[in-house]
Simulated scan of single mutants.
Amino acid sequence: MREAYQSDLRHLVDDLLDMASLVSSALEDATTALLEGDLGLAERVIAADPHIDQRQYDLDTKIVELLARQNPVAGDLRLLVSSLRMSSSLERMGDLCGHIALTARRTHPEPAVPEQHHAQIREMARLAGEALANASTVIAERDLALAARVEEEDEKIDALLQEVARELAKGGEAYTNAQIADMTLLIRFYERIGDHAVSLVRRIGFLVTGDSIDTLSGGGTEVSEI
């Protein structure tokens, strides 16, 4: 009985990593669809999002059953509680990828991203994807040094958001109202993906140390929903 319980705990990490892989693919495909106007790829990202939602539901159900049956304490309890929150962050990241794909579909065949902003969006996507990949490594290896680096690198995504926002504000008639609205949302989507990656590594910090999730890099707050 105890062996089965320990096996279930180990599989939680595998389930989280599987979810992260699905989100990583969605992020890459949604960005390609957005920048290249690939309607078919956008549709595939949108259609895949319910599968990520289902993975969260299945994982959370498993965790609740373990909490009810095993009455875990200490590290095991932290693992279960942290996994609940991490699955929520990953599901939300999947939703944000879906929002990017929905934007690509809605504006097709017109581009949602003006040509002069392609490089910035591509870089935001690269940084967000790298943050997710590093967060996956942190989940697998409990590497707190890498976790701190994820937090530090998140500032680059925030800086790009501010850069694009300033250019939109100063652009005047260079943009349509629709382009301004779409770009404002898109940069926010990518920024929130980065924030959720930070939330993932903070959960591992809590799991390993038992400290508050806000102490990994000396401050900050839990990400909010969008």
Results as ranks from 00 to 15, higher is better:
M1G: 13
M1A: 13
R2K: 13
R2Y: 10
A4G: 06
A4L: 11
Y5T: 03
Q6K: 14
Q6A: 09
S7T: 13
S7L: 14
R10K: 12
H11Y: 10
D15W: 05
D18W: 08
S21T: 11
L22Q: 15
V23P: 00
S25D: 11
A26V: 00
D29V: 00
T31N: 06
T31R: 07
T32H: 10
A33H: 04
A33G: 07
L34K: 14
G37S: 04
G37L: 05
L39A: 07
G40M: 01
L41H: 01
A42K: 02
E43F: 08
R44C: 03
R44H: 09
A48I: 08
A48H: 15
P50R: 13
I52M: 09
Y57W: 00
D58K: 01
D58N: 03
T61H: 06
K62I: 03
V64K: 10
V64D: 12
E65F: 15
A68G: 09
R69F: 13
R69P: 06
Q70N: 11
N71F: 09
P72D: 00
G75L: 10
G75V: 11
D76F: 02
L80G: 01
L80C: 01
L80W: 02
V81G: 06
S82L: 00
S83G: 01
L84H: 00
R85F: 04
R85N: 04
R85A: 09
M86E: 10
S87K: 03
S87H: 04
S87Y: 04
G94N: 09
L96G: 03
I100A: 03
A101Q: 08
L102F: 09
T103D: 00
T103A: 05
A104S: 14
A104I: 12
R105S: 11
R106W: 12
T107S: 12
T107M: 08
E110D: 09
P111A: 07
A112V: 04
V113L: 06
E115K: 12
Q116R: 10
Q120W: 06
I121E: 01
E123H: 08
E123V: 01
M124R: 05
M124D: 02
M124V: 03
R126F: 14
E130Q: 15
N134K: 13
A135K: 05
A135S: 14
V138N: 00
I139K: 03
I139Y: 03
L144M: 08
A145N: 10
A145T: 12
R149L: 14
E151N: 10
E153V: 12
D154A: 02
K156H: 09
K156Q: 12
Q162F: 13
Q162E: 14
E163Q: 15
E163P: 10
A165Q: 05
A169K: 06
K170D: 12
G171T: 08
Q179R: 04
M183R: 01
L186D: 06
L186C: 04
I187F: 01
I187N: 02
I187C: 00
E191D: 12
E191T: 07
D195E: 11
D195H: 15
A197W: 06
V198D: 12
L200T: 02
L200P: 01
V201W: 02
R202Q: 10
R203P: 03
I204D: 05
F206W: 15
L207G: 04
T209D: 07
G210N: 11
S212I: 06
D214Q: 15
G220S: 10
T221I: 14
V223S: 15
